[in-house]
Simulated assay, not measured.
Amino acid sequence: MPRTSLTREEILDAAAVLVKQHGPAGLSMRKLAAELGTAVTSIYWHVGNRESLVDALVERTVRELGAIVPRGSAPADRIVSVARTLRRELRARPHLIAMVHERGLTERMFLPAQQALVHEVHAAGLRGARAAEAVRAVQFQVVGYVLLERNRDRAPVQSPGESDLWTAPVAEHDPALARALARPADPERLFAVSMRALVESLLPA
């Protein structure tokens, strides 16, 4: 028996899950209705047609990306916290981010994070062009890192892999370096280290 009580947010939640599992092409009103145990007409009544549903998903994604709250006491800590949250949010919803991009709303999506960064670089003493450069450097580092991570996630198994390639002679006879590079990279730690180095180089001494 079809469900009689259904909210717009429940529909958007289920639609987001379908997009995450199957990509934007996998989102159809029929699949969504089946997932929710309701009639297609009920979906239309709450959110309109598929285009309206996609628009609503995009708008919600933009809002969610805007809810970034800096954490920490020192300016560098707070900037790094914004970067880490932005990376986590982008990683969590790649297909939804792609839909935002297709709708031409990427710049709007990033604006709240940029504003949070502006506030923090101002607090650190930067103004004008140097502040703008710092904000964009952090944003570009985050986006570039996420894209690299996605490419690594989707890459085929490498043969030979890093564990086979890195030997002491290749590493200029630095055995500890060879062992470290032969181990899988720790994306979380690497991001934190690289972002910290970038931020500290941008802020006033």
Results as ranks from 00 to 15, higher is better:
92 A>L: 03
80 V>Y: 01
104 G>Y: 12
91 R>Y: 00
89 E>D: 12
95 H>R: 13
97 I>K: 06
116 A>M: 02
102 E>W: 01
116 A>S: 12
119 H>F: 00
77 D>I: 01
111 L>Q: 14
95 H>C: 10
83 A>W: 09
101 H>I: 10
90 L>E: 03
83 A>Y: 09
95 H>E: 15
84 R>A: 15
108 R>I: 10
77 D>T: 09
118 V>D: 10
108 R>Q: 15
112 P>H: 08
78 R>M: 06
98 A>L: 09
91 R>G: 00
96 L>V: 09
91 R>Q: 13
92 A>M: 07
78 R>Q: 10
109 M>V: 06
92 A>R: 14
82 V>Q: 03
89 E>G: 00
99 M>T: 06
89 E>R: 14
79 I>R: 02
107 E>K: 08
108 R>V: 13
113 A>M: 08
100 V>R: 05
96 L>K: 11
89 E>K: 15
85 T>M: 09
77 D>G: 02
116 A>D: 02
81 S>R: 05
101 H>T: 15
102 E>A: 15
117 L>E: 05
115 Q>G: 06
77 D>V: 01
117 L>N: 05
92 A>K: 10
99 M>S: 10
107 E>P: 00
82 V>P: 04
94 P>A: 10
78 R>D: 06
106 T>V: 13
103 R>L: 03
109 M>K: 02
81 S>W: 07
94 P>V: 11
101 H>D: 15
83 A>R: 07
111 L>T: 12
89 E>I: 01
115 Q>F: 04
118 V>T: 11
106 T>N: 02
98 A>N: 10
81 S>C: 02
118 V>M: 04
79 I>Q: 04
84 R>W: 01
111 L>E: 15
83 A>K: 08
97 I>M: 11
109 M>I: 03
78 R>I: 08
85 T>H: 05
79 I>D: 06
100 V>T: 10
92 A>V: 05
115 Q>N: 14
82 V>Y: 07
103 R>H: 15
88 R>P: 00
113 A>W: 07
105 L>C: 09
86 L>G: 01
95 H>G: 08
89 E>Q: 13
116 A>Y: 01
94 P>G: 11
93 R>Y: 00
86 L>Y: 09
84 R>L: 12
102 E>C: 00
100 V>I: 09
103 R>D: 11
79 I>T: 07
110 F>T: 03
114 Q>H: 08
90 L>Y: 05
78 R>W: 07
81 S>Q: 03
98 A>V: 06
79 I>F: 09
77 D>E: 15
102 E>L: 08
93 R>Q: 13
93 R>D: 07
98 A>F: 06
113 A>Y: 06
81 S>F: 06
108 R>S: 11
91 R>K: 08
77 D>P: 01
105 L>W: 05
102 E>I: 00
103 R>T: 09
115 Q>L: 14
83 A>Q: 07
119 H>V: 10
82 V>H: 04
116 A>I: 04
88 R>G: 12
113 A>R: 05
113 A>Q: 04
86 L>I: 01
116 A>L: 03
113 A>H: 05
112 P>Y: 10
